[in-house]
Design a protein around this nucleic acid. Structure first.
Lengths: 158, 158
DNA sequence: TCTATTAACGATAATCATTATTATTTAGTA
DNA sequence: TACTAAATAATAATGATTATCGTTAATAGA
């Protein structure tokens, strides 16, 4: 964890930004909740637990800054809120998401599945790909099992 | 065009919705601007040209309805506005987008490039894919050429 | 060390897209 | 023709995000 904070600190310094206590607190919250997809409000509330004097605007400013530096990715699942996701160490690309339309869960895929597709896009459309966003909507493993269980229960009943 | 409106009318009727004049005007605007990625506000202004009495809320409601019926897809390019895109006839999936980070242009790709990737997701993550959203960010053909032209001009100057 | 300069901050007002409300209109039907 | 429910227009309300502005903290030079 400290190692990653050091790294982010260097990234900030390289663009002559500072890692202020507020920014550090925000980054720590992101690191501690890496699995989640926090909204700015979520981050604000979590940071407030440790540093109650922080302002919401600062959280927004920090997230925006981290987003520009590609430390976090700003994503939007269509619910009207932006969510912020730490980019994994060394990852060049945005990771992919699996959004379950039943339970709303979001799972991440680290593997880059788009290398071949990007080659096609570059050769066929002459488009130089810099980054991508890929989200699948569907039914997660858990909900599939529940659906099966529910339908067999119904059969027994009938 | 009339053919496609008829089809949408049937889709509405099948769920016992009506194709009111306001809804029809909205659909026509979408059909006439199929290449663009209009925001609700954009649609509203265009519809207003033909049917000035329409209200913004009605446009929102109509777009939401068409979105539920999968007639249009609601997309978000991260600029804080939802955009609405007619789904092509017979298309089962959302089409892909190429967003240029230089000039902001958005190009569509009709071909489904994700069939293989979806198979991997289904087999490896047990996730039943229903739909997808794929956007590439990068530099379009035009901007690439301009960059080349600009750098060679610079060389000549030096 | 002291002061000037600037970045960063907190509080809060402003903005803007979207949604909710409500009274009215329309279409279909008995 | 009158009844009922859906759909609408106008507008108020909401909620996320951004801008403003006075204050604070960090840094650099005298």
């Amino acid at each position: 964890m400290e190692h990653r904070i050091e790294k982010i600190k260097k990234q900030l310094h390289s663009q002559s930004y500072k890692l202020t206590p507020q920014r550090e607190a925000t980054v720590r919250v992101l690191l501690e909740n890496e699995e989640d997809h926090l909204s700015a409000e979520d981050v604000y509330l979590l940071v407030k637990e440790k540093a109650p004097e922080i302002g919401l605007a600062t959280v927004y400013r920090t997230l925006e800054l981290l987003s520009e530096l590609k430390v976090v990715d700003k994503i939007n699942f269509g619910d009207g809120v932006s969510r912020y996701d730490l980019r994994k160490e060394g990852a060049e690309h945005f990771h992919h998401h699996l959004v379950c339309i039943e339970c709303g869960s979001v799972k991440e895929i680290e593997e880059d599945l788009l290398l071949d597709v990007e080659k096609i896009v570059e050769s066929q459309w002459g488009f130089e790909v810099k980054d991508h966003r890929l989200t699948f909507h569907g039914i997660c493993r858990v909900c599939q099992k529940q659906a099966v269980a529910a339908s067999s229960a119904k059969e027994n009943k009938e």
